[in-house]
Design a protein around this nucleic acid. Sequence first.
DNA 1: AACAACGGGCTTTTT
DNA 2: GCCCGTTGTT
Length: 757
Amino acid sequence: MNFLNELNDNQRVAAEHIYGAAMVIAGAGSGKTRVLTYRIAHMMENGIDPFNILALTFTNKAAKEMTERISNISGGHEAKNITMGTFHSVFSKILRFNSDRIGFPSNFTIYDTQDSRSLIKDIIKGFNLDDKAYKPSQVFGRISTAKNNLISPEAYNDNPDIKLEDKQSRRPEMGRIYTSYMNRCQRSGAMDFDDLLYYTNVLLRDFPDVLHYYQHKFKYILVDEYQDTNFAQYLIIKQLAAAYENICVVGDDAQSIYSFRGANIENILNFKKDYPDFSLFKLEQNYRSTKNIVEAANSVIKNNKDQIYKKVWTDNQVGEKIEVIRTLTDNEEGRAISSKIFDKQKLGGTYNDFAILYRTNRQSRSFEESLRKLNIPYKVYGGLSFYQRKEIKDLLAYFRLSANPNDEEALKRVINYPRRAIGKTSIEKLIVAANKYSTSIWEIISDFNKYPVDINRGTQSKIGVFVTMIKSFQVEVNEKDAFTLAERIAKASGIMRELVSEKNKGPEEVERFQNIEELLAGIQEFVNSSEDGEVKTLADFMLEVALLTDADQDKPEEKNHVSLMTIHSSKGLEFPNVFLVGLEENLFPSQMALQSRTELEEERRLFYVAVTRAMNSCTISYASSRFLWGQSISCEPSRFLDEIDDAYLSFNTVRKPMGRHGSNQGFPARTGGLNKPLGAAPAGLRSLKEVKRTQQSQGKSEGIVIKVGFDVQHERFGKGKVTNVEGTGPDQKATIFFPHHGSKTILLRFANLEILN
DNA sequence: AACAACGGGCTTTTT
DNA sequence: GCCCGTTGTT
């Protein structure tokens, strides 16, 4: 086969390497994935058994794509015998297979972040601690860090440094919470994301036969995005690779952007300590972007101290300069970018060619609004994922309970949903009892004789009905096909009824119902995907669903829309035209990252990632004022703008569309000027009050003529009839009767009303 | 126990 | 500004 001819010299040497340790430092757009896939194909070509290959990726999507590409080049079905996936998915399977060793059922539940937080909250409450001092999310973060560094609860409690830290941050009970958290997860037969890595380490550490088995199964190991691995992941790899040391890690230290969740850039920098004889390959030619884009990105990233030296370059054309757009407000930023996209798309190409990248999810709003006004199709990635929606989590909780009734978070979620008159007090008593008897709530409610609880007869019998129902699902969870059972649960649980009931007929409820239907359709698809005629059960489905994310659900390329996403989720993607927005101090770089050099450098890497997503054009924007927590604040341009070499930039200030306030103060002087506060009270900038007023009149209903008898459309309540109007100006209110929501009195300046007649 | 009203915190990123 | 959870009300 001559597929290796499709690689450049550097890529080919890296791809042809098979034995021993290797590190590939791959600059942005340098064909990293290509090298990885060709490398694996080449290995198989040389007689290496795919069953002996372990390839770890950062996302499920990347794994899937890589498997496909490998089977395309190698032309066989062999590719699917490679163990390929994310750390979490690969090792969750290994853990299920060996679960008896570590005291978990093989069908253990995987808690998502919500579940973990809710459990932690419970524990804090149970310990009678002040949840102001012990904020669940902070406590969770601390536990997560401990686990990612493989610090067990015992080690945590024994460590004087940690103890001191916790005391100083006035959380002396942290260790107790951590211990209890671990215990209760175990009792519930549940692992959180971090546990998957933590217990994999426990498994490999405490059971030499298991370690031996996987060391010899995975003779060849590849790790993608190595810069984003944490200590727990690093150690798993190190142990597995110890027997053969055929390990190849691929990454780019300049694109390490996940240290906030424990990723350790040291792993890549320290590779040579673990494998002194390693081969180093550098991929420095960028095939993605224009010279201007590559150079602009380089000029910023060179300000980082911690990095492996490399010179990313490209043979592509020079291309347009990076356009920097400045607007007065965030809403104006939305309009400016949207109309740019509108104009540009008319010149050719599809909306798929455009992406708007931002630092924080909340920034999507102004772009959504303005895109919608221009009828430009768009899709917001990230945010609340499908699987985190309330209705989906509710139904999944029933599925989880059917597969693993000890799952306490699932049980708490649905024991009284839909309403069964099992109140908060009863549930609290059950939790206390579970702690007292050191067992799960399920054990208690399935046998009140064995575990007496102070709950009245009536409630006990209501709980009994619930238990009977769950038991009836349980018998089928490994028998019936997933769709049949899922549909039965949706109905029998009362969730369907709840969603179609009379009073719930607003647009939101309809959407919820549709989401449930979508989930069921997905399960149907899952059942249909059965290859060998084997019945795919709901238990099978639940094994996969916990680690799925929206990105994995991404439907085929039928799309024609502008992509809106955070820079984090854009990693690994590319777009012909990138709009990088909100380049302001305290936003990007984030305010939280200004404390230390390492944090600031991570923000800079994030900026580097963002710019290098662009193929042909990159536009950067920032606003002088922005709404934050309902208040307009003034903003300064990001320091990263200053760091881009002027040679690659062109400037543009967008005039306000509403004119009148005049004041286009041109562009700030480049030398030192960019970071001077535009803020305080720059000449001509509208005062805070003015900005506020303008904000209110944009797209809102203030000032429109509205009269009694009008039919109007409200975005939440649907159609309604105006029955009364009072007040004037910003205080104008209307009383509107909505058939499904009753009569509401609404301040017009807040309502987004559409007049229908 | 169920619902409305109020208040507080939040907003960095997510497998 | 908005969401969430808590409080107050019947």
